[in-house]
Design a protein around this nucleic acid. Sequence first.
DNA 1: CAGTATTTATACTGTTGGTATAATATAATG
DNA 2: CATTATATTATACCAACAGTATAAATACTG
Lengths: 299, 299
Amino acid sequence: MNDRKQHVIEMAHQLFIDKGFQATSIQDILDYSGISKGTFYNYFSSKNELLIALFKLIYKKMEKNRNELLIGQNPSNIDIFIKQIELQLKTNRTNKLISLFEEVFFSNDPELKQFIKQGQLRTLRWLFQRFTDIFDDSKKPYLLDCAIMFMGILQQNLKYHELAHGSNHSVHQVVRYSVERIVRMVDEVAKSGDQLVQPELLENLLPDCRNTDQAFQQELYHTVLVLKKALNHREAQTKYMELLEFIQDELLHSKNPRKFLIESALLSFKTGQAAFAKKDVQKLDQLVESFFHQIEELG
Amino acid sequence: MNDRKQHVIEMAHQLFIDKGFQATSIQDILDYSGISKGTFYNYFSSKNELLIALFKLIYKKMEKNRNELLIGQNPSNIDIFIKQIELQLKTNRTNKLISLFEEVFFSNDPELKQFIKQGQLRTLRWLFQRFTDIFDDSKKPYLLDCAIMFMGILQQNLKYHELAHGSNHSVHQVVRYSVERIVRMVDEVAKSGDQLVQPELLENLLPDCRNTDQAFQQELYHTVLVLKKALNHREAQTKYMELLEFIQDELLHSKNPRKFLIESALLSFKTGQAAFAKKDVQKLDQLVESFFHQIEELG
DNA sequence: CAGTATTTATACTGTTGGTATAATATAATG
DNA sequence: CATTATATTATACCAACAGTATAAATACTG
């Protein structure tokens, strides 16, 4: 991404935060970022395109931060989950994301609408995956319902808690309360056996975009977490843990991931005698393969 | 309200349903309803003002329908509550209310924003009151929280259930499911004693507009319900029930409510030996008084 | 009928998002 | 260095928009 283009996005973001999306004219953006109209339309085909570019930036950052909180942690630890939620709410707030989202969701630009819908589905998928980390496998058929309801509960509680206590209200308390509610609800709903939406919905709605950057990251994180979870206490501190973290780090944060190192690490998993589920190891293998396939394709 | 003006509102509403609020230009409205620009700006000072007038119309109709479902029914019967919710969702849908709401909530018109906020608070207040009808008094401190969360749960469930099953999805199932969840949650949250927002919030935020029509209706309904609830089984079919329904009907649906009849009916309550709480009877008395005060003031 | 209020047609202002273009600056290439 | 793409600028332009202004026409009312 062009430096200058990035700069324009940032300046526009500032304006959006200050006065809202609709109320910010293109002329405002031109003045504030010091470019000419021609350049603007060279970068973005419309104001909506600029907004999409902005959303993409923020998404990327948020998912990165959110995932980093999990590294080396027990994924079923609910306190980590709470921290992740709080982090997202914080970036939401500083970026005025909610306002921007909703201000624009009912615009008549179908492309923009579709983009935002996808974004919401992605956060829902993330929530669902985290719930499967946190809750027992037997609860799984109900966890998508619970993820959906959790979004609603949290949203509303935040809204009215802020209304009651002003902008200096305690986000932490709201998150804790909402999580507490959903934890009880998971038990209750599983006991009653009542299901509203099948978890398969997600797979149908979110096209399999394994090769896009963000989806890949998410899948990788999740697969590594599942494998970590399979480690028993004795093994937890051993080489497997380290190997997993090495693979993850090398894939995500190294400029030139060393294929041979990662493949050798994978070999340890395939031949080792730790109690890994075969399919999880295969999943990781497949992810690594598709990763390098993509790298080589681009080069 | 002027006939012609009403007609313009209806035509505009149709256009909003067809192509959205933002996408409907004033010129569209002029053409479609066959009036001139001058007339339009004679009726409404802006497009937003027209929208507010439209909302007011729909609100009024919805609250009327919703309340009529309760007449002569046991207010703690949760099936009636479910029917009320379904009715509202139906009018929401035919009027494309949700879209209109959210399309406009983040507009930069503070007046419009405030109006919609008020509307949401009013439905929240209604929900809270209905919850106090349905649930035990001991749960009351938690019922505002539950009403807030119920709104979120219902909203999200509807959204994703529709996404999963297309527009021919069963609203009834979603409402039933959501109500089931909130019923359990009321128990759970009361047991844990965890409170997020105090019910007093409503009184602080909704200015005391006892003399406005809608607020009066709501209060009247509620007070009558409380009194009905206080009737035990033996008394339920007796004159008290009939008296209450007479008073309510006479106040709300008669063109010339007969003050002497109502006051005599009230006397029966004050002097009767049924187990009414004194304050409830007083509330009713006060409502009747303010009602006639307003009538005579206008005449 | 007279007088008032409402409605209409029309022209106008200022702003918006977006297009078009010719001139200029910057970078890449032989 | 000279030539050639490419990026950027300044500026003019367009159609659509919300809203204002006004003079003429119409309807209503006492």
